[in-house]
């Protein structure tokens, strides 16, 4: 039975606070007036949640290239002109959408995979062995986590910027900073690690690795030790235990960590916006920023809206499928000693 049937009349706020929160139906219906009041509140919240979403979807489905002069939250026309334009010709530069997509996917998938592969053995070591330097090394891995992405950007920019491949002429190439051209020639710059997707990938990995190690260690700690002991009795050595027992068991969490990383790297902006100067290397997130606000005086808002929807979709899909695991992974798996 609900406890609320005897509740004396109180003000509205208190009434909402006092609802039975056990979440199970006991067969008794909500009094109609309270049902209606709650429904009104729910609908108001729904409106506030849907407002920006409907706004941007409606805008993206409009064929009008002028800026919106009045508020429209429900599409009056379904036109894919803006999507087509964005896919055909996303920026003012001669860069195809596929190229931008490839950059974004390559960066987020590449960083995610490398960070995972490198992190998993370290996480295993921290989780399963008790060795002299364990505490010290774990704190060492934790230190970069305190640094927000912006914090590591400066030194990485400077260091990666020094690594260059230059053409000295006459078929001679040089690799700076170790091998310079003869006779102090400056040469023609062919490749600068800083100004490349590889460089951005390296810089993002620098921050992603420590996070992956801590996240995976937290999960490996929850795998019972008995399994390994049983394996050891059966004659498996540590390497075999790791590959045949731990790794398969950790697969789900590896996938979750990968997708958390993917969601983050898909939106990566700080490093790529600082490092990259050539439009062919731009990512979708950078393109979206270029279409916003002061930078976008010439870009129709329907095209901006279409781009926003396109950038949002992959993350939304991943999230909807893995919602429980991701929320759980962030709040419980996370960074724990």
């Amino acid at each position: 039975m609900s406890a609320n049937s005897q509740t004396p009349k109180k003000n509205l706020l208190v009434r909402f606070l006092t609802m039975n929160t056990s979440g199970q139906t006991s067969g008794r219906d909500l009094p109609l007036w309270r049902q209606l009041l709650t429904q009104i509140l729910c609908l108001f919240i729904l409106f506030s949640v849907m407002f920006p979403i409907m706004y941007i979807v409606t805008l993206s489905l409009s064929s009008k290239t002028t800026r919106p002069s009045s508020l429209q939250l429900i599409p009056t026309e379904i036109s894919f002109v803006a999507y087509k334009q964005v896919l055909d010709h996303p920026t003012g530069n001669p860069v195809s959408f596929i190229q931008l997509l490839r950059n974004s996917v390559g960066l987020s998938v590449g960083v995610g995979l490398v960070a995972l592969l490198v992190a998993v053995t370290a996480a295993y070591s921290f989780s399963r062995f008790n060795f002299k330097m364990r505490e010290v090394l774990m704190v060492l891995v934790f230190i970069p986590l305190l640094m927000p992405g912006v914090g590591l950007a400066t030194p990485l920019y400077l260091l990666l910027n020094q690594l260059k491949v230059v053409d000295c002429g006459q078929g001679v190439t040089a690799l700076l900073p170790w091998f310079a051209c003869d006779g102090g020639l400056k040469g023609r710059l062919i490749f600068n690690l800083r100004d490349s997707l590889l460089g951005v990938g390296i810089a993002i990995t620098a921050g992603a690795l420590p996070f992956a190690i801590w996240n995976l260690k937290g999960y490996l700690d929850t795998i019972p030790k008995e399994l390994e002991e049983a394996a050891a009795i059966d004659g498996a050595d540590t390497n075999q235990t790791f590959w045949k027992i731990i790794l398969p068991l950790a697969m789900p969490q590896l996938a979750v960590t990968f997708f958390i990383g993917f969601i983050g790297n898909w939106q990566e902006f700080v490093t790529s916006w600082l490092f990259l100067s050539q439009p062919k290397d731009y990512t979708l997130a950078m393109t979206l920023y270029n279409m916003t606000g002061q930078y976008a005086s010439s870009i129709p808002w329907n095209r901006f809206a279409a781009m926003a929807v396109i950038v949002a979709l992959p993350v939304a899909v991943v999230y909807i499928f893995l919602q429980k695991q991701i929320v759980g992974g962030l709040t419980t798996g996370g960074v724990k000693g």
């Binding site: 609900s2 909402f16 609802m19 039975n20 929160t21 056990s22 979440g23 199970q24 139906t25 006991s26 008794r28 219906d29 909500l30 049902q35 709650t38 429904q39 509140l41 729910c42 919240i45 729904l46 949640v49 849907m50 979403i53 969601i263 898909w266 939106q267 902006f269 997130a285 979206l288 920023y289 926003a308 950038v311 949002a312 993350v315 939304a316 999230y319 909807i320 919602q323």
Partner: peptide
């Protein structure tokens, strides 16, 4: 509020209220 027993459309609200979490913050 969404845990109130007997509330109509509870599941729908729960599913739609999650949308802001799903959209990437950059967007």
């Amino acid at each position: 509020m969404l845990n109130t027993e007997g509330l109509w459309l509870k599941k729908l609200y729960r599913a739609l209220y999650i949308l802001p979490v799903v959209v990437p913050p950059i967007v």
